[in-house]
Design a binder for these strands. Structure first.
Lengths: 369, 369
DNA sequence: CATGTAGCTACAATCGACTGCATGTACGCT
DNA sequence: AGCGTACATGCAGTCGATTGTAGCTACATG
């Protein structure tokens, strides 16, 4: 009955369908391209016949050929510094979901490594004629952005922000502030911060936390803020360093969960029990945070949603709609690592941040709709 | 000097370069397509001029157009059940690296969810004319494979195996055996296994471990093997269940690290200290295993390499070379979670597995070169 | 019955790169 | 010097889908 791979096993094209159905290829194109709907009675039969033939022949559109003509590939390029990181992988998952839902697909690429290699990757994406880029790598150099504007390729930053670019991030200042308020309220006056790399988003988290302390009249010294990589080893080293401070902190805020987990290891090696001898709070609330032997307090940021929002923002721009930067709301999740015991347990009213509500420097506080 | 986006801002094509350089478009194609190398002296000048013009105009090849003509897209499709899982994300990273190194790019897609949605995703990939597929999803139905063979799309399985398909996995039976030998040697006679879903690779790990015990004359009962999901919640539930056994195990083997981490939580909730009151071994050796407060013993499988090998195997097939299934060597990494204390610490010679070397059912034991 | 029009189809051109074929040239070998 | 070969080039056509334009048909209206 069916003859899916008909005669010479070549995949069917508009031309073939047209021959079989007795119409012109362009007619096939128009029919297959639009949604099936009510037609004039005398032409409905043609439409039905064409669709039937296409189905019988097992027709599958060739997006490559269509792209050539329409000059739209319906593909988004995604640049991430590494793929094996839960945070980035979760964001990617969100991008993929939203993009697919809107008819786009994504080509992801790992930009880890030498800047030279990064350029090469971007070049490849542009050769592929991606319609736009979602960029999650905070280390791209300026030349790449010049290249993008020269080739009129739109882009959106995700989990990273920069002047003059549309970005989708968490509200990191607020996230840091939530941590600061939590620790301060629990009576911790000496804190240490594992600050991660000097990227805007990481710095924002630090700033939010420090602000809370300074407004409460407690200075946070330079030595209390240690910059490292976003990984367990970095967290481990940073924690070691914080433990050697003259006035040892009673609480540590790691601006990334992986670093926090590394810190846990270092603390344990020093005979300290997290949650009893030292409060610890992470950032991002990755899946295992709640399942660690000592569950980790962390700032939950909607990573999937961040990816989805970024993809939608980019597609909005591609389709001529306007789109602005978004900062998604974080939420502090308190667990055993920072709640069991503390120097002072008397619940104090958290010092409300004064002045500009949210103080988010012109970033939209609500997600795109 | 430069006029990167020349006149009407349209991106340069072979035709334009040809006009400017005073040659025929096909000449431009030939020159730009082959590697710059030694040419006949009298034509070297033409080549140089064409390259210079291309560079000056900021020419960037249009892979979309090339694909249409050559019928090769130089794109691999990758199907993974979820992207936000470290194990899969690491494999993806390996695929991406190897593919890019060989001139291919990848379109990844998240096949999580309803089978219907999976079909749709695969359809999209095929419409995109991907040259081949790397499949890391053990839950695809048979129809999809039929569809692939009908459209002559080659594929390779990764981290999953099935009769009649080329696959790249770890040697899971061996991995399980390593765990069994380790635990037996440490004197554990009652074990519990958190077995994950009933996929071939997971079952292999269980089988390897059980085999060792049975050869030592110790039966492993059905109740000692609990199937769950590959996530912390699953591990938590499974551990709970194992703790209620009449003869409580002194050691637990979780065939996945995430599940092992969940188990850690459950053990702690029951007042047990991992490594002292209960040995625990995971599988895959994800990055944080070594940085957990109590470092987790785990079977290290070269996940990046697995991805790289799968990509290379597929590309070998695409380019007409033959390629067979590969099982990569696992390696047991013993850490505190299973080494601190144990019922019997006397080191016993591990029972060597007899018979066929590796007993790997016809799977190549050495990685592709 | 003439005219207008909505709705459709056919035709041909286009998108950018690549390839088969025919032709032409230079080089190496004997 | 003569011949054969290797290589460079131009030409025209191809890949599959889309689109602007012209022309046609059925139906409605006056």
């Amino acid at each position: 009955m069916n003859e899916p791979s008909g005669r010479g096993s070549k995949p069917p094209t508009h031309k073939l369908i047209a021959e079989v159905a007795g119409v012109h290829p362009s007619t096939v194109s128009r029919i297959l391209r639009r949604a099936p709907g009510p037609r004039r009675a005398d032409f409905a039969e043609t439409e039905e016949r064409v669709r039937e033939v296409a189905k019988r022949l097992g027709y599958r559109p060739d997006l490559t050929a269509a792209s050539l003509r329409t000059r739209r590939s319906m593909v988004l390029g995604v640049l991430l510094p590494k793929l094996h990181d839960v945070v980035l992988a979760t964001i990617l998952s969100g991008i993929d979901t939203a993009a697919f839902g809107l008819g786009y697909q994504t080509i992801v690429t790992n930009t880890l490594g030498a800047p030279e290699r990064r350029r090469e990757r971007v070049e490849m994406l542009l050769s592929r004629r991606v319609d736009g880029l979602v960029i999650g790598d905070p280390t791209l150099d300026e030349k790449i952005y010049e290249e993008l504007s020269r080739s009129r390729t739109l882009h959106v930053l995700v989990n990273h922000r920069a002047e003059g670019h549309v970005s989708v991030t968490g509200n990191d200042v607020l996230g840091g502030r939530l941590v600061g308020e939590h620790l301060l309220q629990a009576g911790h006056r000496e804190i240490g911060i594992i600050a991660g790399p000097r990227y805007p988003t990481a710095l924002d988290r630090v700033r939010g936390c420090v602000e809370v302390y300074e407004r409460a009249g407690i200075a946070v010294g330079r030595a209390q803020i240690v910059h490292t990589d976003f990984d367990p080893q970095g967290g481990r080293r940073a924690a070691q360093e914080l433990l050697t401070l003259p006035r040892r902190p009673t609480a540590i805020f790691a601006v990334n969960d992986s670093a926090a987990i590394g810190a846990m290891g270092a603390l344990r090696d020093n005979g300290l029990v997290v949650g009893r001898d030292m409060a610890l709070v992470g950032y991002n609330d990755i899946a295992i945070a709640q399942d660690l032997p000592i569950p980790l307090s962390s700032v939950h940021t909607p990573l999937r949603e961040m990816g989805e929002t970024a993809a939608r923002a980019l597609i909005d721009m591609l389709e001529g709609r306007t789109s602005g930067s978004v900062a998604l709301q974080p939420r502090l999740v308190v667990r055993d690592s920072s709640s069991s015991v503390a120097p002072v347990t008397a619940p104090v009213t958290a010092p409300r941040t004064r002045g500009e509500p949210g103080a988010n420097d012109g970033w939209a506080a609500a997600p795109l709709k």
